[in-house]
């Protein structure tokens, strides 16, 4: 059995911190686990911390975009936080712009962004 990336629940937010070099199966498992947990926990936001990731290739990039789309469909906003400069420059060169994925510099800013989004959401008539 392969390892799974833990999904932590804090209030209405799910926190995923990727700490190891991911195998493709783990990436697919994470996508599955998160979709399940957004529904079961009634989450309003997802934060994915990739500050420990030394590379993000097109497979992981696609996973991030897919998770953002799935979670939006399930009523939760996803924020990807902590992307390293070298990773961002590589993704640009690779041709991946992570359209539709919200990003923040670090975990703290990611949480603030989610809070701001939910305030804006609840303020709507």
């Amino acid at each position: 059995m392969t390892d799974r990336v833990p999904v932590l629940k804090i209030g209405e937010i799910l926190l995923v911190s990727i700490q190891i070099d991911l195998e493709d199966e783990m990436v697919l498992d994470l996508q599955e686990d998160l979709s399940q947990k957004i529904v079961s926990a009634g989450a309003k936001g997802v934060v994915i911390d990739i500050s420990a990731l030394e590379i993000v290739d097109s497979f992981v990039g696609r996973m991030l975009a897919t998770i953002a789309s799935i979670s939006r469909m399930l009523g939760a906003e996803t924020v990807v936080v902590g992307m390293r400069p070298a990773v961002a420059m590589t993704l640009v060169e690779l041709g991946l712009s992570l359209q539709g994925v919200r990003t923040a510099l670090n975990l703290e800013r990611g949480l603030k962004l989610l809070r701001r989004l939910s305030t804006a959401h609840s303020a709507r008539p």
């Binding site: 497979f59 070298a86 990773v87 420059m89």
Partner: peptide, 17 residues
């Protein structure tokens, strides 16, 4: 350099996959 490393390893990851 770190950026060159990252670009190379990312390319290697794509091609190995």
């Amino acid at each position: 350099s770190l950026v060159h490393q990252t670009k190379l390893v990312t390319a290697a990851s794509e091609l190995a996959r």
